[in-house]
Design a protein around this nucleic acid. Structure first.
Lengths: 223, 223
DNA sequence: TGGCCGGAATGAAAATTCTGGCCATTTTTG
DNA sequence: CAAAAATGGCCAGAATTTTCATTCCGGCCA
């Protein structure tokens, strides 16, 4: 799961990336509208967290620019607490949600979950858990429930499984997967994806993930 | 489709040949101007990728030499990013295109496609696909569209079909075909071409490729 | 120091390519 | 004109290459 954080306050960036990482997100950071624009066109993010006040331009304009180009990546806007009118404009410009600063990280995480699930066409269960075909992921505990059993997941396993759960029954190529698993700049030439598919299969059962030779993997749950 | 890569940087050569192979090209490599000159006279390449900075001579001089001899093989020059003046000289010397290093492989592939199609007198469709008589080749996916149907192609089938599509309605001998299908030093003494013509006919329909006994094949598309 | 991650190595499995052969058709030859 | 030779179509098994599964190991961070 890959996020683009557009924010120039270094302190905030440092803190947020730490928290986001702990929650299993990979985060690229852009400190300016220009960088953000470049990065968004380079790789597919699951969500953009966009500060309204940017050094080289207005966050809102950037967002409008994207929407005009039919870039549909979900966007959560960050605004100063008082600026209600701006918030409203934010909606009109096509933001999917907004958050007044300062905010609790928990709040941001909750909205991320909601926005990303929605954009993948998946509704969350009332208990806010991702689930498909008898396999349920507990995001706060980073554990998985398979039928009666419950397993702990390593960070990597958790991230991979979440990606599968967001797009069940869909073919995902190894490149798509590693794009979502790793940062923009560390291109990997290795078989980590395969390795972790193996790990997940040990916990979920062999048939939960089908491999399409030469194409990628498909997540089926327990059938 | 056969390329001659003239480049002495081993690392670059290794990476490029891999990518070119994946895109369905057969690539011979020359590390020096002398080798390049020799190889070009030995076998008919569809395009030469020529580094301007060679150990035993200047790439430009080599190119000029060829053009003086009326060798018309398309040439794409590789130049250091900054050297604009050299680029211009490149055109004067008869290069068909140039590319500043470093470059994205995608860029090179796009230009190869363009240069090769042009030199065969075939224009690409706006969507950059080769097409003739109801048969359309998708180069990025390595699939064909025949009327309503779509088939996947193996690497060999893809390469062969591309050759036919570049020269529709023209007689191509089996030798010409296998020249373009295999590397300089691993000429096949067998009936592979016939075998793959058979394979293609299964997908394109029997009449798409006419046999001229004792001479070769002619590609007609769907009539 | 222990668990996790990334990468390499190894072996298995699958897909593709190649080979040789046999048969059908066309061309050549006596 | 008929028989022989040459050529191409096509198949099935062998060989090769590609892709994937799995294990192992060094390094890193907590």
């Amino acid at each position: 799961m890959k996020l683009l954080l557009v924010e120039d306050n270094e302190l905030l960036v440092k803190e947020l990336t730490k928290q986001l990482k702990a929650a299993g997100y990979v985060t690229d950071v852009a400190a300016s509208a220009m960088d953000a624009d470049y990065l968004l066109k380079e790789s597919p993010y699951d969500c953009v967290i966009l500060d309204i006040g940017l050094p080289d331009g207005n966050g809102l304009e950037l967002l409008q620019h994207w929407r005009q180009q039919e870039i549909a990546t979900p966007v959560i806007m960050l605004t100063a607490r008082s600026q209600w009118h701006e918030k409203v404009e934010g909606f009109n410009a096509g933001a999917d949600d907004y958050l007044g600063k300062p905010f609790h990280t928990q709040e941001l995480l909750a909205r991320l979950q909601a926005v990303i699930s929605r954009s993948n066409g998946r509704a969350l269960s009332p208990s806010k858990q991702l689930s498909f075909g008898g396999i349920t992921l507990d995001e706060s505990e980073q554990t998985v429930e398979v039928g009666e059993q419950r397993f702990e997941l390593t960070a990597m396993e958790f991230r991979l499984l979440r990606i599968f759960l967001l797009s069940p029954k869909k073919l995902l190529s190894k490149n798509q997967l590693s794009d979502k698993l790793y940062q923009f700049d560390d291109e990997k030439e290795s078989n980590v994806v395969e390795v972790y598919v193996t790990h997940l299969r040990k916990k979920l059962g062999k048939s939960a993930i089908e491999t399409r030779r030469g194409q990628g993997y498909i997540f089926h749950g327990l059938e």
